[in-house]
Design a protein around this nucleic acid. Structure first.
Lengths: 224, 224
DNA sequence: CGGATCCCTGACGACCTCCTAACGAGGTGT
DNA sequence: ACACCTCGTTAGGAGGTCGTCAGGGATCCG
């Protein structure tokens, strides 16, 4: 299901969006300020963000930059100001669309559909296989020699990031950012632990990894 | 260069857009009606389309559908009508953004930048090759005759600096600064060491370097 | 309430990378 | 011919990084 994060400090707008989005079959998570937006985004991993610029704590552009630091999720900005400068600042900070209040709900929904359509166009090849292992990214399922292997949520996220970048070296910072979200850039012991668990579950010889190679001092690389 | 197709039947708008886009470094091609738009798009393959909905021959939504039949190029719709229904129809037909006239030129340009930024997510990998060696800067990988070569972080940084400046003489000071950072400008013994390791791993005859040449008293030069 | 699962933290040994130092080779100017 | 400088090579120790194990806290479920 498509998950949408709605960020607004006005309860009535939050409620209106929640009702309309839920009626269209979206899963809705909300936040009332900038700090909450960044936290919820890191925890819930929405497929799209609707962001009001007039937040009580942080400037909206800062929120956009905070999100863009580690994710490329589509961002639709909602704002009461129709200033041309505000629009340019938000869009250049990394927003994908800008709608001024008051807005038509059907127009907003159409813009959301357009953004989601563009994002979902690049989702091909949900099946990745190497050796005895088959990874189904769409179904969140992993099999080794036909037998299903149970992965914890964190293990799965780590595997997904690696498998989506075959042959490419992923720095520890990059992996920590994409799996644990911002704020965990220094938890390298954690990354080592989960990499070991992944290898013990997927590698034929976990002591001598063949697919999930470590590049000392730099990061890890998935090599099919 | 980024190529933009502008479709409008009003000459003054066409002229204003052409001038502003050209001033920003875009290549501009134009069409004055729907049939021309489809023809020019097929011939010129623009990276982005700015489309006025009020065309004399074909309905704008039909033009969008005609484009979407064979290309996923981003489409920004320009329209005099601010009807909510028109927006929804155009967006659901496949448009990516919708701006109503009169529009601010800086806002329009910001929206174009946002659309182009999203599209360019799948950048091709920069590959540098010389002799048997292939350097993949995006994946952080080096192969010699097809076999992968393991490089330490410092070796890789040094190689990256050299490879990014082909044919250019890099002074020792410059190399030390870019690889080791400020404060190590005098550690020339270090630079000699890592240059030797790079040569022993990449050069066919490390004793007589062919690609990583040393200019006595000055620095080093990468010659593909 | 008890058990299970998952996530995080800390400690320890093994390994690897990095830096420093010393020595020889080659070129240059006096 | 000699001194001097720069470059290339080798060896060894210091420090950081990686993999592994054990233990505690949080959450979910029977």
């Amino acid at each position: 299901m498509t998950r949408v994060l709605v960020v607004d400090d006005e309860p009535q707008i939050l409620r209106a969006l929640r009702i309309n989005l839920a009626a269209r079959g979206y899963e809705v998570v909300t936040a009332a300020d900038g700090a909450g937006a960044l936290r919820v985004a890191a925890e819930q991993r929405p497929d799209l963000v609707v962001l009001d610029l007039g937040l009580p704590d942080i400037d909206g552009v800062e929120v956009i930059l905070g999100l863009r630091g580690w994710t490329s999720v589509p961002i639709l900005v909602l704002s009461g100001r129709s200033d041309s400068g505000d629009k340019v600042d938000a869009l250049d900070a990394g927003a994908d669309d800008y709608v001024t209040k008051p807005f038509g709900m059907d127009e907003l929904l159409a813009r959301l559909r357009a953004m989601l359509r563009r994002g979902s166009g690049t989702e091909d090849e949900p099946l990745v296989s190497f050796g005895e292992v088959v990874v189904d990214l769409a179904a969140t399922r992993v099999t080794v020699g036909g037998d299903e292997v149970r992965l914890t949520p964190t293990e799965w996220q780590l595997l997904a990031v690696l498998v989506r970048n075959p042959g490419k070296l992923m720095s520890q910072r990059q992996l920590l950012l994409e799996v644990w979200g911002p704020g965990y850039e220094t938890a390298q012991g954690n990354l080592r632990l989960y990499m070991a668990q992944l290898r013990s579950k997927l590698e034929p010889d976990p002591a001598r990894p063949a697919y999930f190679r470590t590049e000392p001092g730099m990061g890890y690389r998935f090599d099919p």
